[in-house]
Simulated assay, not measured.
Amino acid sequence: MPNKKGGCDLSGLVNELNVRIPILRDITSEQDHQQALSLMEELIEDYDTNLVVIEALSNAITRYEAEAASFSEFNQRSEAEDPAVATLRVLMDQYDLNTTDFKN
Score class of each variant (00 low, 15 high):
residue 12 G to F: 00
residue 76 Q to R: 14
residue 15 N to G: 04
residue 11 S to A: 14
residue 13 L to F: 03
residue 82 D to S: 06
residue 98 N to W: 06
residue 99 T to S: 13
residue 56 A to N: 04
residue 14 V to H: 04
residue 84 A to T: 06
residue 31 Q to H: 04
residue 23 I to W: 10
residue 3 N to G: 02
residue 6 G to T: 07
residue 57 L to G: 07
residue 72 S to G: 07
residue 3 N to R: 01
residue 3 N to C: 02
residue 31 Q to W: 00
residue 45 E to G: 11
residue 9 D to I: 00
residue 66 A to I: 06
residue 5 K to C: 09
residue 53 V to N: 04
residue 84 A to H: 01
residue 88 L to T: 04
residue 81 E to N: 03
residue 10 L to P: 01
residue 33 H to R: 12
residue 21 I to R: 04
residue 59 N to I: 02
residue 16 E to R: 08
residue 37 L to N: 06
residue 100 T to R: 10
residue 76 Q to G: 14
residue 80 A to D: 15
residue 2 P to V: 02
residue 101 D to E: 15
residue 11 S to M: 09
residue 86 A to H: 06
residue 45 E to W: 05
residue 52 V to Y: 10
residue 98 N to V: 13
residue 57 L to Q: 08
residue 29 S to C: 12
residue 24 L to A: 05
residue 72 S to R: 14
residue 30 E to N: 10
residue 59 N to E: 09
residue 79 E to F: 06
residue 62 T to S: 09
residue 98 N to S: 15
residue 63 R to V: 15
residue 27 I to F: 01
residue 13 L to M: 06
residue 53 V to S: 05
residue 80 A to K: 11
residue 77 R to W: 03
residue 5 K to I: 11
residue 78 S to G: 13
residue 12 G to N: 02
residue 18 N to V: 00
residue 85 V to N: 12
residue 51 L to N: 11
residue 58 S to K: 04
residue 43 L to G: 14
residue 37 L to Y: 01
residue 74 F to S: 13
residue 26 D to P: 01
residue 70 S to W: 08
residue 1 M to Q: 08
residue 68 A to Y: 02
residue 101 D to Y: 15
residue 23 I to D: 12
residue 36 A to H: 10
residue 76 Q to N: 14
residue 2 P to K: 10
residue 45 E to T: 12
residue 21 I to N: 03
residue 47 Y to E: 14
residue 90 V to W: 05
residue 83 P to K: 06
residue 81 E to G: 00
residue 55 E to N: 13
residue 19 V to M: 08
residue 61 I to Y: 03
residue 37 L to I: 03
residue 87 T to F: 10
residue 50 N to E: 02
residue 29 S to F: 11
residue 59 N to Y: 04
residue 98 N to H: 11
residue 101 D to P: 14
residue 63 R to G: 06
residue 10 L to K: 13
residue 9 D to S: 01
residue 65 E to N: 03
residue 55 E to V: 09
residue 51 L to A: 10
residue 41 E to D: 09
residue 73 E to Y: 12
residue 38 S to W: 00
residue 30 E to A: 13
residue 38 S to F: 00
residue 65 E to I: 00
residue 82 D to N: 12
residue 4 K to E: 02
residue 52 V to C: 12
residue 89 R to P: 00
residue 21 I to E: 04
